[in-house]
Design a binder for these strands. Structure first.
Lengths: 334, 334
DNA sequence: TGCAAATATTCAAACGTTTACCTCTTAACC
DNA sequence: GGTTAAGAGGTAAACGTTTGAATATTTGCA
C-alpha cells in the first residue's frame, strides 16, 4: 500500500521547494513558465491532488457544510437536499447529511458531531422546539440557516414557505368551488407546519364566515389520514389535509366508505410531493418549491460563509395552488 | 469573533502540557486522577472539542466516507442512504452525499472531488459503464463498495440484489395465476437493472415455455410507462413492468383504455417503493430491501476501512415477491 | 538510605499544506 | 558601472493534534 504522494514528493522530483509547488498550484502567475510546466508535468504524471485535510487545517476551513433534516426517507426532503447540493458543490463545498428523526437528543448529538467535524456552516431543520445546542454554532459565529422553521431567539438566516398564505389560498379556492362544510385533518399539533396551516385555515374560516367546520390533529402520515377520517363527527363536503400523505390515506378511507371523489366529497393535500400528480384521483394541493427551498438556503449559507459582513436574512417563499381532480370544478365567484 | 479554543488554551489554563490534555481525552488511564479531573473541568467549562481536522491530518483519516448515487430524488435511493448513514454514524463516520445524475463526466468529477477530500472510503452507484476514475481509489487501496452494480474488472466489494431471480419468482407466480400472454415494459436497455430483469423474464419464458410475449424498452419513469403501452402490438393478459414508476404510468394508461385491473389485465412493478402499497390498485411487485442494501454496504465498507486485511466481498440480497391487488388471485398450480 | 521499577508528565517531531519574509538573480535606469 | 526595483525561488513558521522518546516524580523494597 503506497503512501499518498504529497507535495514534498513532487518538490523533490522537480528539484524545487514545496512552496514552489504550492505556488504552481495556487498562484501560477508567480512562478516562471519553465518551472511551472515542469512541475505541472510531474503533478499530472503522479496524479497528485493536494491533501485537503492539510489545506483545511492551514486555512481553517474544510469547505464542508452540515445538513440536518428529520428523515431523508420523507418525500419532502430529497428535493431540498438536491437543491442544496447542486448549489454548494459548484462552490467546492461538500455536504454532510444527517437524519435526526425529529428527536431532540439526536439533534443535539448531531449538532455536536458536526461542530467537532469543523463544518463551515449548517443547514438545519429541527423538531418544533428550540434546540439550545444551536448556540455552539452561533456563539462561535459559524453560519446557520434554518429551514422551514423560525426561532426568534436567534438572529440566524432562514428559508420558509408561507404556509399560512398557502392554506388560505387553497381555502379561498375551495370556497369559490362552492364547498360549504370543511374538515381540517392536520399533522402533529406541535409542529411548525401544522400550526401554520391551521392558522391559514382559521383565517379563511373567519374571512369567509365559514360556520360548518371541524379540525382534527394526528400525524403527517398515510395511516394517520386514514384514521382521522373515523374521528370526524360527520363527513363534510371537503376534507382539507395537512399534507399529501394524509390526503392519500383519507382518499383511501373515503372510497372505502363508498363515497366518490370529487363527486361526493373533495379532498386536498399540501406539499405536492412527486406522486400527487399521478395519484388517483390526482390531488388538488399546495405546492411547496422544495428544490428552491434547498437552493435558497444553500445560497444564503454560502454568502454568510464567504462574505465578510453578510447579515443574516430571512427568505419567505410562496407556495402555489395546484388544482387537480380531487376537488370539483369552480362554480361561482366569491 | 473569538477563535475556537484549542488544546493549547486548555493546557495553559490547566498549567499542563498539551500532550497531557490529549491524554486526558484519549487515554485517561495514563494520567493521574487529580490532573484528569482538573483538565476535564476546564474542558467542560470552555466547551472544548478537539479539532477534527488536525486529528484527521495527524491520524491520516477524517472519518468521512463518500456516497455517490444517481439522484436522491429517485425514490429508490433515500432508504439506501438512510441505511448507510444509520450504520456509519454509529461508528463515528460522516457521509458526504453526491448526486451524479448517471452522467459519466459528472461521476468522474465527483470521484476526483471525493478523492481530494481524502475520504476514507466510497460507496458508489454508477451509470452502466465502468468508470476508469474508480482506479484513483483502488490503486491507492482506498476501500470502495459498489451498489447495485458489479464490475468484474475490479476486486472491490459490492452489494446487489438478485434481480434475475426476483423477476423469475414474479413470473413464476404470474404463470401460476394462469396468465398466458405477457409483455415486459422495461427501463433503459443499457442499465444493469434492466438487463437483469430482462434476463429473469427470458429465463421464465424458457422454463415455462411461454409463447405469447413481447418486450419493449423505454426509461424507468412514469411517462415512459404510459408511452410504452402504446407501442405494444396488443395488450397482453399481464404487463410486467421494469419498475414501480413504469407500472404507475402503465396502470394509468390501461385504465384510460377502459380496461380494468386486475379483472381485464394484470400489472406488476419492481422495487416496491413506498407508494406502491397505497397506489390504486395497490401494486403486485418485487421488493428490494433498500434499507438493507445501504446497511450492508456500509458494514462492508466499514470493515474494509478498519480491519487490516479484510478481503473484498460480494453480497447478494434476495428480493421478495409482494402480492397485492394489481394481479388476479392464483388459480392453479404449475 | 539508596536504587530500581513503576508511574506521571513533558518534549519535540510529525502529519501536508500555505504564506510572510528573506535572499538571490536579473533587468532597468541614469 | 552602480543603484534600485522587480521577479523568482527558498526558508521556516504556523495550523491543532498525537505519540514515541525523554525526563521527572513517586513508590516499593532491601
Amino acid at each position: 500500500m503506497s503512501r499518498k504522494v504529497s507535495m514534498k514528493d513532487i518538490a523533490k522530483i522537480a528539484g524545487v521547494s514545496p512552496s514552489t509547488v504550492s505556488r504552481v498550484i495556487n498562484k501560477p502567475s508567480e512562478v516562471s513558465e519553465g518551472l511551472r510546466k515542469k512541475v505541472m508535468k510531474i503533478i499530472k504524471e503522479l496524479n497528485y491532488t493536494p491533501n485537503s485535510v492539510a489545506q483545511g487545517l492551514r486555512k481553517g476551513s474544510m469547505k464542508v457544510i452540515g445538513v440536518v433534516i428529520p428523515d431523508i426517507t420523507n418525500p419532502f426532503f430529497p428535493a431540498i437536499v438536491r437543491g442544496i447540493e447542486d448549489f454548494l458543490r459548484k462552490k467546492g463545498y461538500s455536504l454532510v447529511l444527517c437524519n435526526s428523526d425529529q428527536d431532540m437528543e439526536e439533534e443535539k448529538k448531531l449538532l455536536k458531531f458536526l461542530y467537532s467535524k469543523n463544518v463551515d456552516g449548517v443547514i438545519f431543520t429541527g423538531s418544533g422546539e428550540y434546540n439550545p445546542e444551536i448556540e455552539i454554532f452561533t456563539s462561535r459565529n459559524i453560519p446557520l440557516v434554518f429551514l422551514d422553521r423560525i426561532y426568534k431567539k436567534e438572529s440566524s438566516s432562514y428559508v420558509i414557505v408561507d404556509n399560512v398564505d398557502g392554506m388560505f389560498k387553497l381555502m379561498t379556492y375551495l370556497v369559490k368551488c362552492g364547498y360549504k362544510s370543511f374538515a381540517l385533518l392536520n399533522g402533529y399539533k406541535e409542529t411548525f407546519s401544522a400550526k401554520a396551516r391551521y392558522e391559514g385555515f382559521l383565517k379563511a374560516v373567519k374571512k369567509y364566515n365559514i360556520k360548518n367546520y371541524e379540525v382534527v390533529f394526528g400525524r403527517f402520515t398515510y395511516e394517520s389520514g386514514y384514521e382521522m377520517v373515523e374521528k370526524l363527527s360527520k363527513i363534510p363536503e371537503v376534507l382539507v389535509c395537512g399534507n399529501d400523505l394524509i390526503a392519500y390515506g383519507v382518499i383511501n378511507k373515503i372510497e372505502k366508505l363508498g363515497l366518490s371523489i370529487p363527486d361526493d366529497v373533495g379532498v386536498t393535500g399540501f406539499d405536492d410531493i412527486a406522486f400527487s400528480k399521478h395519484y388517483k384521483p390526482s390531488l388538488t394541493t399546495v405546492r411547496q418549491p422544495m428544490y428552491q427551498i434547498g437552493k435558497k438556503a444553500a445560497e444564503l449559507l454560502f454568502k454568510m460563509i464567504e462574505l465578510e459582513k453578510y447579515k443574516p436574512k430571512g427568505i419567505v417563499l410562496n407556495p402555489e395552488l395546484v388544482i387537480r381532480e380531487s376537488t370539483k370544478k369552480i362554480e361561482m365567484e366569491v
